[in-house]
Nucleic acid binder design. Structure first.
Length: 413
RNA sequence: GUGGGUAUAGCUCAGUUUGGUUAGAGCGCCAGGUUGUGGCCUUGGAGGCCGUGGGUUCGAGCCCCAUUACCCACCCCA
């Protein structure tokens, strides 16, 4: 191990992983184009207050997971732990949502949370974030979900399904919350220690506790779907109808809740069995109250985030990507051929061909072996004999055909 | 923040049972043989402060303590 290593929870993405990352990023941009979503690149650093107010002062993220510091002028700043708050800030700051029509945006980049690393969880991780501002209706929820489905499907994920729920609105959620709290209070001694804390802080989270005993208790508790007000019920019905009308599969799960304060009504998650305990690949929902919480107008919003590391973990298991080698591997077989080989490589590269070479002479055997490893299509051999005759030998590694060409006619191939 | 596990060659790991001379394999790398000039086969070679620091012992990769890093899970989340 070298003396200086990467910071805990921060990982290098090595060259052999890059094809997968590009696949995912290209697909995200492709779908954004087709669905009419524009890219916004928000800064990685924001004022701490943005997240404190946006995510919720009492959430774990804000309380103990943020990279927060003072800059040299004494301002409190934070590395973004999620993308939504920053996008809202940018939209308000640049008046991007004043046209009366919905503003469709996406953002691709790193997020930072000070958590204990484990499988599928790092301190720096990457998300695709898709958000729509200014449309309160249910169809846009369905559009966003359909975009997410298309994204995952076109990347070749087959065994995923969207779990869907409605958390209700400021009118009906408090009623359910009240019911649930009083029900759970009666069973408090039988809840796990974590849930006993949740009971005070965020009783909804008891619903998705992993402990069996808690699940059993919650199963007999009040049903969220029965507590929705008529407006929220209608909203959910249009979302599900819309998804059904285009053949998208979803699973209604009335125990699905969200950790962040700003969600309302539609909420959804995607999980995969290819991951470990951190099985959520994507999650999102509607957050109508967020803009106002940040001091802006009453601007509705809906969106989701995809965890790219987790997505790529799945793709790495389910897809075999062939890495393409260079067009040519140039094998200089003697010290005196290095100079001419260098010139030749440069000329070919200027002509648009990809050429790899090692700038030290080696045996023919080792050069051919290397060309094979790199996955090169052809090898250009330049040895003393060839050099004396102003020729090169070109061998096609696939067909094994070999031709001798004059150096001056190198442009021909 | 709380548990559990791991740390030996560039990579994946044996070796710890019962402490005992020069620490092993496979892959990769280098050189040779064979081959139709690479892939298969074959011979040889380079490459290790056994995570770090203490301790026990005549003697520690192996036992004890501490420390660090990584992994997995809880928590939380995507």
């Amino acid at each position: 191990m070298p003396e200086i290593t990467a910071v805990r929870g921060f990982k290098d993405i090595l060259p052999d992983q890059i094809p997968l990352w590009r696949l995912v990023e290209d697909k995200a941009r492709d779908l954004a184009r087709r669905f009419g979503y524009l890219e916004l690149r928000a800064p990685v650093l924001e004022r701490t207050e943005l997240f404190a107010r946006g995510i919720g002062e009492t959430t774990d993220i804000v309380e103990k997971e943020m990279y927060t510091m003072e800059d040299r002028s004494g301002d409190k700043i934070t590395l973004r732990p999620e993308a939504t708050a920053g996008l809202v800030r940018a939209v308000l700051e640049h008046s991007l949502a004043t046209s009366g029509r919905p503003t469709r945006l996406f953002c691709l980049g790193p997020m930072f949370r000070y958590e204990r690393p484990q499988k599928g969880r790092q301190r720096q991780f990457h998300q695709l974030d898709v958000e729509v501002f200014g449309d309160p209706g249910p169809h846009i929820d369905a559009e966003v979900i359909s975009l997410l489905c298309a994204f995952l499907t076109e990347l070749g994920l087959t065994d995923v399904s969207i779990q869907l729920n409605s958390l209700g609105c400021p009118k009906c959620r408090p009623i359910f919350r009240e019911k649930l709290t009083s029900f759970l209070k009666a069973h408090e001694p039988n809840l796990c220690p974590d849930c006993q804390k949740r009971l005070i802080r965020n009783p909804l989270r008891v619903l998705d506790c992993k402990v069996e005993a808690c699940q059993a208790i919650a199963a007999n508790g009040p049903d969220m779907s029965e507590c929705l007000c008529p407006e929220c019920q209608d909203h959910l019905a249009v979302v599900t109808d819309s998804l059904g009308s285009v053949g998208l599969r979803y699973v209604l799960n009335n125990r699905l809740v969200r950790g962040l304060d700003y969600y309302a009504r539609t909420t959804f998650e995607v999980h995969s069995g290819y991951l470990g305990a951190q099985s959520a690949v994507a999650g999102g929902g509607r957050y109508d109250g967020l803009c106002r919480q940040l001091g802006g107008p009453d601007l509705p919003g809906v969106g989701f985030a995809v965890g790219l590391e987790r997505l790529i973990m799945i793709l790495a298991q389910t897809q075999k990507l062939e890495s393409l080698g260079p067009d040519y591997y140039l094998a200089a077989l003697a010290p005196e051929t290095l100079g001419p080989a260098f010139k030749l490589a440069h000329q070919l590269r200027l002509r648009g061909l990809s050429v790899e070479a090692d700038w030290e002479p080696g045996s023919l055997k080792s050069r051919l072996k290397r060309a094979d490893r790199l996955g090169a299509l052809k090898v250009i051999m330049l040895g003393p004999d060839e050099l004396a005759n102003n020729q090169v030998t070109v061998r096609n590694l696939v067909t094994k055909e070999q031709t001798i060409l004059p150096l001056t006619e190198i442009n021909l191939f």
